[in-house]
Simulated scan of single mutants.
Amino acid sequence: MKRKKHTSVDDEAQIDMTPMLDIVFIMLIFFIVTTSFVKEKALDVNRPEDSNANPNEPSKALSIRIDENGTITMAGREVDIRRVVANAQTFLANNNTDTAAIQADEDTEHGIVVEVMNQVKIAGIDKVSVLVKS
């Protein structure tokens, strides 16, 4: 039996990559063409305008706290829910502001918070924020 001698041509087997590259490019084109670009729906955010106010001077907002029992505190003293309008108007007379911040306990009934918000809006404050713990 005769043995065949290995030559260098037999050791260097090569694979033709052209058909594989063609398939990859065809798949890439297919995925690009079939992809649908959908604009996601989202809420529009109204960002505040840059004000010319002095950044060192803090803006004063009406601060209202409501505890878990529904007790309303304005300017460090307890206030009845029927007197929120009068106290807010007094605050507006002494301070040039259009914002109020309501900080309610997490166990406070929502109806009380909504009623305080309504009373503050009746007093003439348009921008009302509700503060929550995060």
Rank of each mutant, 00 (worst) to 15 (best):
E49R: 03
I125V: 14
M17Q: 12
A13L: 12
I64G: 03
F25D: 05
I125S: 13
V24A: 08
D50V: 08
P48A: 15
N95T: 10
I125L: 12
T99N: 02
G76M: 03
E40N: 12
D98N: 15
V113F: 02
D107S: 06
K121Y: 05
T34L: 02
A101H: 04
E106D: 14
V114G: 09
V113Q: 11
D44G: 06
P48Q: 09
Q89T: 14
M17K: 15
A61M: 04
I23P: 03
D126E: 13
V24H: 02
V114S: 13
I72P: 05
N54D: 10
I102D: 03
G124F: 00
F25W: 12
T34M: 04
H110S: 11
Q103S: 15
R82W: 04
A13R: 12
L28A: 13
A61R: 11
N56Y: 14
E106Q: 15
E68N: 03
T34Q: 02
R47D: 11
M117W: 08
N54G: 06
G70H: 01
A42S: 11
K133D: 08
V85T: 12
E49D: 13
L131F: 02
I112R: 08
D16W: 04
T108E: 06
K60A: 07
M20P: 00
F37M: 11
G76P: 11
T97F: 05
I102S: 07
F37C: 11
N46F: 10
A13W: 04
K121M: 11
N46P: 06
P55W: 03
T97L: 09
V45S: 05
T90P: 02
V85P: 12
D105M: 04
A42H: 03
D10H: 14
V128H: 01
I29Q: 00
D50Q: 12
K5F: 07
A100V: 10
V85K: 05
Q14T: 14
R77F: 14
H110N: 06
K127V: 07
R47P: 01
S63H: 02
A53L: 09
P55E: 12
G76L: 10
K4V: 03
I102V: 07
I81L: 10
A53Q: 10
V84W: 01
P55Y: 09
K60Q: 09
V45W: 07
H110F: 08
T34F: 00
I26M: 09
L43M: 04
A100W: 02
V120A: 13
T90V: 08
D98Q: 05
M74D: 02
L92Y: 02
I32Y: 07
D22A: 11
G111M: 03
M27G: 01
V130D: 10
N69I: 05
N54T: 14
K4H: 00
L92V: 01
M117E: 15
S36L: 09
V38D: 12
K127P: 02
R65H: 08
A13N: 05
L92G: 01
A93P: 02
E57P: 10
S8F: 01
Q89S: 05
G111R: 02
D126P: 12
N69S: 05
D10W: 00
D98T: 04
V130R: 15
M117P: 00
V114A: 15
A61D: 11
N69R: 09
E68S: 14
E57L: 15
T7A: 06
S129M: 12
